[in-house]
Amino acid sequence: MSKPVLSARNLTKRFGGLVAVMDVSLDLFKGKVHGVIGTNGAGKSTLTNLLSGDLPPTTGSIFYKGMELFDLPQHRVSRLGIGRSYQKTNIFPAFTVFENVRLAAQALHQRPFQFWKRAGSFADVNQITERAIHAVGLSDKRKIQAFAMSHGEQRQLEIAMCIAGEPEVLLLDEPLAGMGHSEAERMIDLISRLKNDHAIMLIEHDMDAVFSVSDYLTVMVNGQVLESGTPERIRTSDKVQQAYLGYGEDSHV
């Protein structure tokens, strides 16, 4: 097996007395989707925040291509190649789709000493922007202001901004949240296309979706890893059945 792009070792995050994430280790590989499931408050979003550099871990280490990320500010983590989407749509509402994505694309090519050139005049950045918009299927909406789009489209925009930073790792925090059925299907389709070029961590509540798209799964309960393995193994795990899937989701599994 190839080397992981991103790996976390024994991550723990405490907020005062509360332990949000405890001793979690996981690996993300290029071409694979690593699903993370768990009940609300299981620590999935905190885990994302740790991996993306939004929060520093209390203990434990994160390695990107073998290099330890130690105390790096979030923008440096992002520029290394770890992109993330947010659970709550987190876009720039007054900007157009194109401007939103370009802002993400130009983060990689910040040229503070070319301040006399108009933002729209960099061919490389425009090209990356167009590609990302095309990838999520928003090409015909590129001149629309983000707030005027549907919730599902805003989620797609969120992903476009994520990939415009040309990351190798994608941390997707509930990309399907609040989506209609057909929108969700399109998003799953998009994720399975994106996995060719990216190592993806997918946090999701929609069990059907996670099981269909993931190559590997981690189940979290109370901040800890309960079980991890292939979807097949998780499906048949007694521990998971009891602790998590037993709550009424079992009919799907």
């Binding site: 993306s52 939004d54 500010p73 979030q74 923008h75 947010y86 802002l103 983060a107 910040q110 930073g165």
Partner: peptide
């Protein structure tokens, strides 16, 4: 969000 996109 700008920080998450990679802006210092």
């Amino acid at each position: 969000r700008m920080r998450a996109l990679g802006y210092p």
